[in-house]
Design a protein around this nucleic acid. Structure first.
Lengths: 194, 194
DNA sequence: CGCGACGTTGATTTGCCTCAACGATTGTGG
DNA sequence: CCACAATCGTTGAGGCAAATCAACGTCGCG
């Protein structure tokens, strides 16, 4: 499928490329379209790709021995998603990557990613700064999990992802917040907005 | 205070430098020695430095409106520490950085850090990979907070930082795990190792 | 030695979970 | 396009892990 320059800009928002650089990037990206329900990665798989989201919605989640799910990350337009722990450390996935809403994605392999960093050093700087922002975001989430009640975390989540409830089920949100669907239901009932 | 080449290798473990590169790095690092109890950064400060730990022990912690503390990170030999959220985003600190045990540190400013990345590109690659590892570690901690009991988290913590209990108080560990000192005390009592 | 900081123990409370049953919504085949 | 089944969300009762509140040991340092 053809890859548009504007789409590459969407996936690497905040950095501008020369035409030559766009060509290099386009040469390693692979555009894929996937239906809701597709499991792109399942626990145990070797993870060699990450996915830039052009449209649609995805999530990564971990399933514990009791079968309980924990959603680690949602992926919406402009975000990159994969089991990064496995992707970065070249180990087997411990998480699953699921399409929640029909999606168009850009696939980028570990190898090609390193190739891009060598060919386009400013891309590595860009990603390094992205990772720094993620660092801050993760710290915030850890603090949030430690210090806030379930209701407070839900309110923060809704503010952070205002329109995500159109794409995801309540039990996905519950599993992101680390609570049960029953608890989330009760929290929603108590909220002023109802 | 004089900066040894071997000390720089300790702070950037896993990467080797030429003599010239060592000189560049040494020119921007400042060695400081601080006493236990020193608050290096307090909430509200502008954060312009990060600190590589040569010896001693530190922690970053957040204090909520009720005065309850949450420890985000411990810093021991070979680690870098600061309020990274503020450091990366050039905003005011929301956390405090405290010396738990007399420490010798290397101070590196935001500006000098960017300068080093330009002068020594492989250092940026090194840091980018470090950040990727941190990404994996943070995900693991988030999952751990969501899915494990307090006792399980305590056991994992002790395994991850085997000798840290020599430097930190139990209530520091409790505040890292997101539990009270009373609960930690009860958990320790129930553990086979006692 | 004595005081303040730290850790422990007990009694009680609370936020969220579990289990169970029942509505509501969505999707699919006839 | 409706009917019905499966999935998803809500509600209630009861239980449990950890918090809170309070009191009392214990350790280390001036």
């Amino acid at each position: 499928m053809h890859i548009e320059s504007s789409e590459i800009q969407e996936i690497f928002k905040g950095i501008s490329f020369t035409e030559e650089e766009i060509d290099i990037i386009a040469s390693v990206l692979k555009k894929i379209v996937l239906k809701k329900g597709t499991i792109i990665i399942k626990a145990g798989d070797i993870v060699t790709n990450s996915y830039g989201v052009l449209n649609g919605c995805l999530r990564t989640y971990y399933t514990d021995k009791k079968g309980k799910e924990y959603t680690l990350q949602f992926g919406i337009q402009g975000w990159w998603i994969t089991d990064y722990t496995a992707f970065f450390t070249s180990s087997k996935a411990i998480m699953n990557l699921e399409v929640l809403r029909d999606a168009t994605l850009y696939q980028l392999s570990t190898k090609d990613r390193e190739y891009l960093f060598i060919k386009i050093p400013k891309l590595e700087t860009f990603i390094r700064k992205k990772l720094e922002n993620v660092y801050a975001a993760f710290q915030k989430r850890i603090l949030s999990n430690l210090s806030l009640t379930a209701a407070e975390r839900y309110v923060n989540f809704i503010n952070a992802y205002p329109n995500i409830d159109k794409s995801v089920k309540n039990y996905h949100i519950a599993s992101y917040l680390g609570i049960t669907t029953e608890s989330l239901s009760r929290i929603r009932k108590e909220l002023p907005s109802h």
